[in-house]
Amino acid sequence: MPTLLNLNGFKFFFYANEHEPMHIHISKGDEYAKIELATLKVARNTFKPKDLKQALDLTQTHRQTFLEAWNEYFSKR
């Protein structure tokens, strides 16, 4: 499970056996979200609204890095 970023208590990661569409998993404590990288669509969420907004903002800020990491990781398989 490659971890891409730990910031403000949020952990951004993907699993080694991922599938399309490209997405990022985010956890903070017991809360969790799955966000599609192309559209920032929330596919799953247990975050409180404030935490989800922060997770989305961080995903948008780091989206290019996440996309590059996804492409690099899965191109080696």
Rank of each mutant, 00 (worst) to 15 (best):
A55C: 09
A69F: 01
P49F: 02
D30T: 06
R44V: 10
W70S: 13
A33L: 00
K34N: 05
A16P: 09
E18K: 03
M22K: 15
L5A: 10
I26E: 03
F14V: 02
L4F: 03
H19F: 10
P21R: 15
F13T: 01
E68H: 12
F12R: 04
L56W: 07
P49R: 04
K28I: 03
E72V: 05
K28P: 02
Y73W: 11
I24K: 01
T59G: 08
L7T: 10
L52T: 09
T61C: 05
F47I: 06
E18F: 05
H25E: 09
T3Y: 00
L58D: 05
G9W: 08
F66Y: 02
F10G: 03
F74R: 03
A69G: 08
A33Q: 00
L37N: 05
N45T: 05
T59K: 05
L67V: 15
Y73H: 13
F74A: 08
G9Y: 04
K53A: 11
E68I: 08
N6H: 09
T3M: 07
T46K: 11
D57C: 01
S27G: 06
F47K: 06
Q64K: 15
E31H: 14
P2A: 04
F66Q: 03
L56D: 07
Y73P: 01
L52R: 03
N6F: 02
Y32I: 01
Q64S: 12
F12Y: 12
A55Y: 04
E20V: 04
F10P: 04
L56Q: 13
N17S: 12
K50C: 00
H62Y: 15
A38T: 08
I26P: 03
L58H: 03
D57R: 09
L40F: 15
L5W: 05
R63E: 09
P21H: 14
K76D: 08
D57L: 12
H25S: 05
L4A: 04
H25R: 12
F74H: 11
M22A: 13
L37G: 02
T3I: 14
D30S: 06
M22L: 11
H19W: 06
A16I: 08
Q64W: 00
L52W: 06
I35C: 04
L37W: 08
F12Q: 03
P2I: 04
T65I: 08
L4H: 02
N6V: 12
Q60I: 00
F13Q: 03
K50M: 05
